[in-house]
């Protein structure tokens, strides 16, 4: 993984376990999202990913590949010499994208020199129905994009422009210099990819339900219902937003259980509030109708966490 992001962070060139622990404690206390990078020798890095104060994973990066790593083994690997340790705070979206990359398998590396080449590359991924993450890096910027079956997931993309983060890849990527592109194949059984799948499935379901609800209850009732759902989930301080028929999830959950817990609360709120307006039986009907329209894989992801229609109607 390229290192632009870490340039904004706090680095201790002569780090120690004390410095590492202190950085971890700081992220935990602040309920922060970010990465801690420990450079062990010239070729190895250990990356700790934090999601809103909770450790999402520890990874050893070696020869461009990452694998889960047990932090207890650090002292064995380290050998006692000072090491460089760096901590960087990230927005949840960036943390999530990097977590996906860390839990993926590096596939190929290529160079994009012009816009046409970039567009062609997108078409190749679409043809191949590529599922995975893509890291693009220029001299000054670094971006992450997630693709599912060849489709670029716009709401998952994030770009670091050297000063701050943007929620989209820059337009005309190939027009501004040369970009290094690294693709990472998805590891569907990994925690990060399961979280993504669960998140996408739940958002798809929730969006469909709200859309159908709007068709029956109208825009004004939808607005009121959406605001009440938002108020119901507010105490948890999740970065999940209901606006019209859209549900946007900007939160970095450290695992599928935490993700499922949040969506359970969201659907509970939806079921209750919709029930006040159109009744429990019709709410259940809508939840079921839209659930059955989901793809088999999406249904399975939701069912695995008991996110099913019968659980959310009053």
């Amino acid at each position: 993984m390229e290192r632009h992001l870490f340039l904004t962070g706090q680095t201790e060139l002569h780090g120690s376990l004390v410095a590492l622990n202190s950085m971890q404690a700081k992220l935990r206390e602040n309920q922060g999202t970010g990465l801690i990078e420990v450079k062990v020798g010239a070729a190895r890095q250990i990356v700790l990913a934090y999601a809103n104060g909770i450790q999402a994973g520890v990874f050893l990066l070696e020869n461009g590949q990452s694998r889960p790593f047990n932090l207890a083994e650090l002292s064995t690997l380290w050998g006692g010499a000072p090491f460089s340790v760096c901590s960087v705070s990230l927005p949840d979206r960036a943390g999530r994208a990097i977590w996906l990359i860390l839990e993926s398998r590096k596939q190929e590396q290529l160079e994009v020199r012009d816009e046409e080449a970039w567009q062609e590359q997108l078409r190749v991924w679409e043809r191949e129905k590529f599922s995975g993450a893509v890291e693009i890096t220029s001299k000054t910027g670094q971006g992450f994009a997630i693709l599912q079956k060849g489709n670029l997931l716009v709401e998952e993309s994030v770009f670091f422009n050297g000063q701050g983060f943007e929620n989209t890849l820059p337009p005309g990527i190939g027009m501004v210099g040369i970009w290094q592109v690294i693709t990472y194949a998805a590891a569907p059984s990994s925690n990060a990819w399961q979280c993504l799948n669960l998140r996408k499935s739940a958002i798809h379901w929730a969006g469909g339900v709200l859309d159908r609800y709007e068709s029956i209850a109208g825009r004004r009732f939808l607005e009121v219902t959406g605001k009440e759902i938002q108020m119901l989930i507010q105490p948890w301080q999740w970065k999940i937003y209901v606006s019209g028929t859209n549900v946007a999830d900007q939160h970095f959950f450290a695992g599928t259980e935490a993700t499922a817990h949040a969506y359970r609360a969201l659907f509970m709120g939806m079921g209750t509030q919709m029930g006040f307006v159109i009744g429990g039986s019709l709410t259940l009907r809508i939840l079921t109708e839209i659930f059955e329209e989901l793809e088999q894989a999406q249904r399975a992801a939701l069912e695995a966490h008991r996110l099913i229609p019968a659980a959310f109607s009053i």
Binding site: F221, G275, F276, I278, G279, G280, S281, L282, R285
Partner: peptide, 10 residues
């Protein structure tokens, strides 16, 4: 009535 229950729009 049975479909909407006590929902406002029923």
């Amino acid at each position: 009535f049975f479909l909407f229950g006590r929902g406002y729009l029923g």
